[in-house]
């Protein structure tokens, strides 16, 4: 029932072709353990579906429950400014146990991101974009993380590779 609003736009971080038959949007929090568990599944899904899938990530940090979620999101947005959003995204999910400021600065260094840019991100340079993602998620019916939308419809099924591939292939067929 719940529909993605706003729809995917150039404002979003997207991997995969714009005209892919299926777009999967994840609302995620870098410190959320369930998002951490979904991360390898969604990676495998991208690999399995190749150019048939466009994957979009939107921020939904639960900052009261996860003290590092907000700065981790800011860090990934800062990385996007040098075209390295997905590298940052992957790095964060692969190091969920180390998301403190010092670790984030070290990841920034590894990505070739200026220390000043990361610090500016910590100070709120990307807060508006993050908040916009969050608000859009609320309006779209996001009720926790990770929350997935497949071609604009909220997906409430299990986050495992087989079920996701099945669901998406059925959708893809109907678009073909």
């Amino acid at each position: 029932m719940s529909q993605l609003n706003p729809p995917v736009s150039t404002d979003d971080h997207a991997a995969g072709p714009e005209d892919a038959p299926v777009t999967l949007v994840e609302y995620g929090d870098y410190e959320c353990p369930y998002c951490g568990m979904a991360y390898p599944v969604l990676k495998a899904l991208q690999e399995a579906l190749g150019s048939r899938l466009r994957f979009v990530f939107r921020n939904f940090p639960l900052t009261e429950a996860h003290p590092h979620a907000s700065r981790a999101a800011a860090f990934a947005e800062a990385a996007a400014s040098i075209g390295k959003f997905w590298e940052a995204h992957d790095m964060l999910y692969e190091h969920q146990d180390a998301l403190d400021d010092r670790s984030l600065l070290a990841y920034g260094h590894a990505l070739g991101l200026d220390r000043a840019v990361v610090l500016a991100a910590f100070e709120g340079a990307y807060d508006e974009k993050i908040r916009r993602d969050f608000r859009g998620g609320l309006r779209s019916g996001v009720n926790g993380t990770p929350c997935l939308f497949i071609n604009g419809q909220r997906y409430d099924g299990p986050v495992d590779l087989d079920t996701l591939v099945d669901t998406i292939e059925r959708l893809g067929d109907s678009y073909a």
């Binding site: 719940s2 609320l138 309006r139 996001v142 009720n143």
Partner: peptide, 10 residues
């Protein structure tokens, strides 16, 4: 068992 989210309230 279902978290209703906040979209209805908003």
């Amino acid at each position: 068992g279902i978290n209703p989210g906040a979209d209805g309230i908003l």
